[in-house]
Design a protein around this nucleic acid. Structure first.
Lengths: 351, 351
DNA sequence: CCTAATATTTGGACCGTTCCAAATTTGGTA
DNA sequence: TACCAAATTTGGAACGGTCCAAATATTAGG
């Protein structure tokens, strides 16, 4: 039950040196004599000294607070939790601690949280922005010279670094895979048309369709909420058109699951009568029935690389905005009809 | 791009008052005249002032740093991510921020992280302890008078508050449910015998068996790693015994999934030929085939209540250790053989 | 044994805010 | 108009470190 906090002067007194010397020991300076150092260290241990980083930061003029802020839009979503873990790994081993907050897609929450982090003097921020985040929301940070890395979703117009996955490439590969299985009528389901991510994935789809000499058919593109419910709705709409698709690329895995539901409700078996590909490779993708073929994005790796980028910018004086696109990998499972055991692909014309 | 940081004296100067007055405004004191307050506030806005909480904490002697630490053993696990989100909710709306770190079950990591948080002057800690955490690990915190709430797993001997789920009750209810479906030979699979959680769940099992006048048979209890692999192994062992069980309570959902694998490998269909109940209600439980009957524990609710408890202790002077047991709910799905549609239960004697 | 170097230690100012006691202003009343 | 109480405002000392220039100790060379 230590009454008062132990401070450097306490241990200076006890060790018979000045507080300056204690401070020197604290920062591992080579200026201090070894015997002094050991004596001081011993006293620190004995008295149960705990370093007060807040006090230190006060004098050391902001920059190196050893705190980095992490703000995610939905920690409940395994994808973002993994991202945070990836960040934590590198941040922690670089001797920083992370301030983590969850915004639940609320812009107000996000604003509050970022403000609070500023007050605590974070030396950098990794942000997976809530939907609708504008460049203006990040303005105060960047004009204060605090490095910011946005992850997953880009913030148009903001002069900050970003780490995003290769949306174009992922969908491109998925389409080509479906084409190689014999499909010619491939739909693109789900996602909100106003987001950058949607545009990128859709461009990947269009480019692949064009690259395979297939006719572009805008009716095959149906946008909807990027959720299970949205997928259900989207597949319904896709099956209404005259020349029905035999396969679909889904905006993300949740949409793909919804599409499964919708297919089954119509007596169509996904993976057998209809091919489906998702995006993200969420945790349930591999255990679902049928196991979902999807584009895997390694959120933890993104977190790690994002954190590395941030740390680099922190140590460099002026942060030079930089964008990393994280590459992506098609994971072939059952829902696209190409079983790994080499079973013959489902006949693509039947629906 | 503001060169130097704006401080209270800057705004005092600009507003033509003293820094004391500015400080008063900052803390919303009623001592300051309204016209002064508005003028000062305006200047703060104009100059882009940001409050320096570190400096404030320095003077305000520790207690109210507005930071609470959250340490979880595995953020990748949806269960703990939900827990953290629950904590964040109440912590955030109480004007605190959370320092979150992940230990990946490493005691060293945990030690480092807790030390680092102390240096940052957290006013309380919520800890989901890594396996093997000893009371001694928390000693420094409690003797410094910092409130600690451990969640999910208890730390034996530590004089701290705890919030744990009602393990006894959950398993008790599960066993009674199986008995009501006609089962008489019910196994208990998985879990490490040396953990408190295991003991509690096993006690629930034993008490329910006894309460239903069924013979206690220790060979029906097989411990194994609390993982999918452990479940696979455990079910294999359980099926070796002469008078085979027709149902099993699994230590957690992962074990239950492993048990499913094991049953299928022997041509036994879980949910039809054999009843299985899990614990935790992880996210895959409801989408698995068959959907898993399990004991649901609402991690987010636990997080919220744990945080409330912590905040209470922070505002109270001396933390009085207190234990909350969070109640638990049996979610009946398909794996126990009792379909919600009222189909007749599987014949319990056949295996 | 003295002196210049080199190695080590030290006093005090300072970081941005809060707190306290004292000073100043304001308002009401005799 | 003088005087007292209430309402506001204010200077300066903390808080617990770091930093710098200057002081002191030690060592080597002559």
């Amino acid at each position: 039950m230590g009454k008062a906090r132990v401070t450097v002067v306490d241990i200076a007194k006890a060790a018979g040196v000045s507080k300056s010397t204690v401070s020197l020991v604290l920062q591992g300076s080579s200026l201090v004599n070894d015997v002094t150092r050991t004596k001081v260290s011993a006293v620190m241990r004995d008295l149960g000294y705990v370093y007060n980083r807040g006090a230190a930061n006060l004098r050391q003029a902001g920059a190196n607070s050893k705190i980095i802020g992490v703000v995610v839009n939905d920690l409940t979503n395994g994808f973002f939790a993994e991202l945070a873990v990836g960040v934590d790994m590198v941040v922690q081993s670089a001797g920083f601690v992370q301030f983590l907050s969850n915004t639940s897609e609320s812009l107000d929450r996000q604003r509050e949280v970022i403000a609070s982090m500023r007050e605590h003097g974070i030396s950098g921020l990794i942000l997976s922005p809530a939907r609708g985040t504008k460049a203006a929301d990040l303005k105060p940070l960047v004009s204060a010279g605090i490095p910011v890395v946005v992850a997953v979703r880009n913030v148009p117009g903001a002069k900050v670094s970003a780490i995003v996955s290769d949306n174009h490439d992922g969908v491109f590969a998925a389409v080509r895979h479906l084409v190689s299985l014999g499909h010619r009528r491939i739909a693109f389901l789900g996602g909100f048309g106003d987001t950058a991510v949607f545009k990128e994935r859709l461009d990947g789809y269009r480019d692949a369709i064009a690259g395979c000499q297939l006719p572009a058919d805008e009716t095959l593109i149906v946008d909807a909420a990027p959720s299970r419910a949205g997928g259900l709705e989207a597949i319904g709409q896709a099956l209404m058109i005259a020349d029905k698709p035999t396969a679909a690329i889904c905006f993300n895995d949740a949409v793909a699951f919804g599409a499964c539901d919708g297919l089954r409700a119509r007596g169509i078996e996904p993976g057998k009568d209809f091919a489906l590909v998702g995006f993200d490779d969420v945790i349930e993708a591999k255990t679902a029935v049928p196991a979902l073929t999807t584009v895997s994005v390694d959120p933890q790796g993104m977190g790690r690389r994002g954190a590395q980028l941030l740390l680099k910018q922190i140590s460099a004086g002026k942060p030079e905005p930089e964008t990393i696109v994280s590459s992506v990998r098609l994971v072939v499972r059952e829902s696209c009809g190409a079983s790994r055991e080499g079973a013959p692909p489902a006949a693509p014309q039947a629906v």
